[in-house]
Design a protein around this nucleic acid. Structure first.
Length: 268
DNA sequence: GCACCTGGTGATTTATCTTG
DNA sequence: CAAGATAAATCACCAGGTGC
C-alpha cells in the first residue's frame, strides 16, 4: 500500500493513522472482524469457515481477536443473534432523563459520577435511537464501562461512571436498515443462503454492503472522570464514512420491538 | 531505522455433538 | 451413558509491522 501511494512505509503508516485513527494493520483487522460479525449473525457458516473467509488462516487467532474486540466469543455472538444481551449490560430501564433513556454499567466499582449532554444528528431525517458507550481506549473494544441508550435526539445521561479517563462512542442506525448497532449488514436474509465451499460463497461475501453504510457515529474524549464531579459532553452524530474504522463491540438490540421490551417509548 | 510489541501460527485443551 | 468425532477456545512462541 505504501509503494502504491509512493510513500515510505513509515510515512504511509503515519498518514493512514492520522486519517483513520488506526494503523493499517489494525484497520484491516477491524474490517475482518466486522465482516465476521456479519457472517456470524446472518449465515449458518461454521466459525472455522468464517475465520478463513475473512482472512485468518488460524481459527485460534480469529477466536481470540474476536472475543477481545467484540466482547463475546464468536459462538456466543451468533447465539445472541448478533446483539449484546441487555442482561449482560446490567440493564435498568428508564432511570435517566425523564424516563426516555436507559443506562447502566458493566462492572461494579467505587466512586461513581454522571456524564450528561445533548445528543443531536447532523443529517436531516435522522431521529432514531442511539447507543452511547464509554470505553477505555480511543478505539472501542469489548464491552463499555458505562453506557446509555436514548430513543432519539435530546438530553442523555450516563450514570454510574467509574473514575478514570474514558472515550465516548455513540452509534445509531437508520430504522429501515433493520439492525441496530455496528453490523451494517442485511438483517438475517442476504447471507442465509450461503453454503460451504465454492465460488457462490465468495461472491456472497463480496456482496456485503460497506461497514459504514446506514450508520451514524460520534466520538468524544478523552473524558476525565473524577469522583462526584459530573461531566458535560454533547454528542453530535454524523454519518459514518469509509475512513471510519468499523465499530467492533457487540451492541444491544435497538430495533423498535426490542426497545419497547426494555421499557422505551417509540420515538416521536 | 531500530527495538519492541502486536498479531499470526499451530499445538493443545475444552466443549459439544453423534453414535452405538 | 460412554466413547469417539468434530468444532471452538486457549496458550506459548515467533516473525514482522508499528511506535518512537
Amino acid at each position: 500500500m505504501a509503494r502504491t501511494a509512493m510513500y515510505s512505509k513509515f510515512h504511509f503508516t503515519r498518514i493512514f493513522q492520522r486519517v483513520t485513527g488506526l494503523t493499517p494493520g489494525r484497520f484491516l483487522s477491524a474490517v475482518r472482524l466486522e465482516k465476521a460479525k456479519q457472517l456470524l449473525a446472518a449465515t449458518q457458516l461454521m466459525v472455522t469457515d468464517i475465520s478463513h473467509l475473512v482472512g485468518y488462516s488460524s481459527v485460534g487467532t480469529f477466536s481470540s481477536r474476536f472475543t477481545y474486540n467484540v466482547g463475546m466469543s464468536p459462538t456466543l455472538y451468533r447465539r445472541f443473534g448478533g446483539f449484546l444481551p441487555w442482561s449482560a449490560l446490567d440493564s435498568r430501564p428508564a432511570i435517566a432523563e425523564a424516563g426516555r433513556a436507559s443506562s447502566g454499567r458493566a462492572a461494579p466499582g467505587r466512586s461513581r459520577t454522571v456524564i450528561r449532554g445533548n445528543l443531536s444528528y447532523t443529517e436531516p431525517g435522522w431521529d432514531g435511537p442511539a447507543f452511547i458507550g464509554l470505553f477505555g481506549e480511543l478505539v472501542p473494544r469489548g464491552q463499555p464501562v458505562a453506557w446509555s441508550v436514548v430513543d432519539g435526539p435530546g438530553p442523555y445521561a450516563i450514570e454510574d461512571v467509574p473514575e478514570g479517563v474514558w472515550h465516548l462512542m455513540a452509534c445509531a442506525q437508520q430504522h429501515d436498515q433493520g439492525r441496530a448497532g455496528a453490523h451494517g449488514g442485511p438483517a438475517n436474509g442476504a447471507g442465509r443462503s450461503a453454503h460451504r465451499g465454492g465460488h457462490a460463497m465468495f461472491h456472497e461475501v463480496r456482496s456485503w454492503p460497506p461497514h459504514h453504510q446506514g450508520l451514524s457515529v460520534a466520538a468524544e474524549g478523552p473524558i476525565v472522570v473524577r469522583p462526584g464531579l459530573g461531566r458535560l459532553a454533547d454528542v453530535r452524530m454524523r454519518p459514518m464514512t469509509l475512513l471510519d474504522p468499523p465499530i467492533l463491540p457487540a451492541l444491544p438490540d435497538m430495533r423498535p420491538g426490542a426497545l419497547l421490551a426494555q421499557g422505551f417509548r417509540p420515538a416521536g
